[in-house]
Amino acid sequence: MGFIKNLFQSKKRREKAQKYKIGMEKTRQNVFNQLNELLKSGEKIDEDLFEEIEEIFIMADIGVDTVLKLVNHLRQTVEVKNLHDAEDLKEIIVEEMFKRYVQEEIIDTNLNVEDELNVLLFVGVNGVGKTTTIGKVAHLLKNEGKKVMMVAGDTFRAGAINQLKVWSERVGCEFFSKPEGSDPSSVMFDAIHYAKENDIDVLLCDTAGRLQNKQNLMKELEKIHRVIGREIEGAPQETLLVLDATTGQNGLSQAKIFNEVTNLSGVVLTKLDGTAKGGIALAIKETIGIPVKLIGLGEKLADLEYFDIEEYIYGLFSDVI
């Protein structure tokens, strides 16, 4: 078990990982206890076992393709290493998941916030928690000493502007909006000019939720993205796809199409405090290469964490290893 133990040897690590563990308590209980149950010492490795492992991963909403590959790899490893005891699989599963996610890259989950004016654009389908996430990110950045302004780019949904405004009051940061029904690109344009004159460090731009198969709405988003890039070179510094952890396989389609339109820099995985596992994020990283940057673990301002794959896996497997 050396590999995983090494990962978590430092005390600080362990403490931080503990937070994940609590946040994802339900997730763990639901899925990975079964894995623990399954991979008991003395159990035989056979086709039935592989099928059950497959189902456990499917239940965590990890993409079907990703699961099939993972399990195939397990089969091969078992053959090559000539393993017979199910318990030996634990380490291999964890290691393989880790490798698949990281893919020999260095993954930086820090938000790319520089000294000049930064724009963070939040996109996603309806009801994933974009506005709430902006509230939390504002809180986080404000605590880091940044001058933050929220931009109400959802001019479509009833009550959306007010919802963001309430968050800005809670956080105690600046807020920019135009009347409901305004062209969202013009909101961004005006907000950027206001921010330049008022020494704002970071703009957090909300957008209306849109299903990725709505062409006109995706074109609108493309325009928003383009306008921001035209006004500030290199902006938006971050374009974050907000993804509900309860989302199933459709998460892949969301990541793919939103990425085509806005060139995503990361994913924010929300509502991870429920029983959902958000496993689709692993498939997104594997197939599209977009990493998770932040996770939402509740409705309070402070319920936001930087994503750490090691801790995530540890959170899932802490009973296993």
Binding site: V125, L211, D244, T246, T247
Partner: peptide, 28 residues
Amino acid sequence: DAMTGQDAVSVAEHFHESLAITGSIITK
């Protein structure tokens, strides 16, 4: 939400147990 993954079962079970729902509506 129609996009819900495997967790739909757990969600439905819990709500049904607590409230004895009489029907459902699928959105999006």
